[in-house]
Nucleic acid binder design. Sequence first.
DNA 1: ACGGAGATCTTCT
DNA 2: GAAGATCTCCGTT
Length: 201
Amino acid sequence: MTQHVLLGRAFYARDAREVARDLLGAVLVRRLDGRRVSGRIVEVEAYRTTDDQAAHAHAGHTPRNAPMWEAPGHAYVYLVYGMYWLLNVVCEPQGTPAAVLIRALEPLEGQDVIAARRAGRSLLAWTSGPGKLTRALDISGAHNRLDLTVPNAALWIEAGERVPDAQVRTGPRIGLGKHVREPWLSMPWRWWIAENPHVSR
DNA sequence: ACGGAGATCTTCT
DNA sequence: GAAGATCTCCGTT
């Protein structure tokens, strides 16, 4: 019955894979025109650090990935394919450049706002992908480097009802086939809630 | 249902 | 100069 409990620095200051697992069921909240527009996190991916070949941090410190060196709980938002903003949350103790990608949401509050922003699409296409959900919640480069642990800002994450292990599924990450090789392929990097129709496909 | 291609532009080589 | 942590549309089956 916890309500509107903001996730703080300590939550994010852990191994990115633990944070990813625990973000399932949490609620991403966006304040738009004074209203709460939110979704339950149903799919995530972890990107570790310089030893993870698929991670941006693998290249070392660059202008783009600089936010990953901020304190845990900051947003790392970047543009892919010239068109889609992707939202990550910085994890691990500060100085270790790791992050979790928010891949899919189940719409909760402000569904009329989301529907308007995703006009012409069906409910299941509103937020079922990392590029879709940023459009649905109006998340962009303007939110890069934002501290998500600050109460009542533009964007933050609240604790939700914990998803039991029996409902958690894992698998390889999506969209980077040629980068991922052993031993990383044998480890869990993507988590989602079983049977949830808002998971990307 | 499934597959292929185009959109669009920043980043790093 | 090429590729990219994607999505949508259009074709065919």
